[in-house]
């Protein structure tokens, strides 16, 4: 069984809980395991939050296009935006996972989650838009 969720939302943080809700509904309908749902919702929130915060342009001035495709074997998430070129998988800072509480910096943690929780990630710049793909296998 396969299903696709297609969303277009303004580049505003306040839009993201609605995206999470829609993705959870798809996961429930498609019978995703709890850890798959968590990974997909988290990965999408982290990538979309980066787009809103670092993509440039005023909130609400552009759109983020999201496609989530669920098949028997995997869930594929694609995020496209027209913000400034930014490859989160190579340009975001690497978190220092060994630093103590007082020295620990928070930057890069969201992208680190995506890299660890997803089975595949990729970035490309196409037609003046960023295109992030994340794939999570279901077993």
């Amino acid at each position: 069984m396969s299903a696709t969720l297609h969303l277009r939302v303004p580049n505003r943080i306040e839009e993201l809980p609605g995206v999470s809700e829609a993705v959870e509904a798809l996961g429930s309908e498609q019978g995703w395991a709890q850890d798959v749902t968590y990974a997909i919702v988290l990965g999408l929130e982290e990538v979309a939050t980066n787009v809103v915060r670092h993509g440039g342009g005023d909130p609400g001035s552009s759109e983020i296009e999201i496609d989530v495709t669920s098949s028997d074997d995997e869930v594929r998430v694609e995020v496209r935006d027209s913000g400034r070129a930014f490859d989160p998988f190579h340009e975001a800072p690497e978190p220092d996972l060994d630093a103590g509480v007082q020295d620990r910096q928070i930057g890069g943690l969201g992208v680190h989650f995506v890299k660890v929780l997803m089975d595949e990630t990729s970035y490309s710049r196409e037609g003046g838009r960023n295109h992030v793909t994340m794939v999570k296998r279901r077993s």
């Binding site: 988290l42 982290e46 939050t49 928070i106 943690l109 989650f113």
Partner: peptide, 9 residues
Amino acid sequence: AYISSAGLR
């Protein structure tokens, strides 16, 4: 139920 990097920060 859920926390992302924003909450961990």
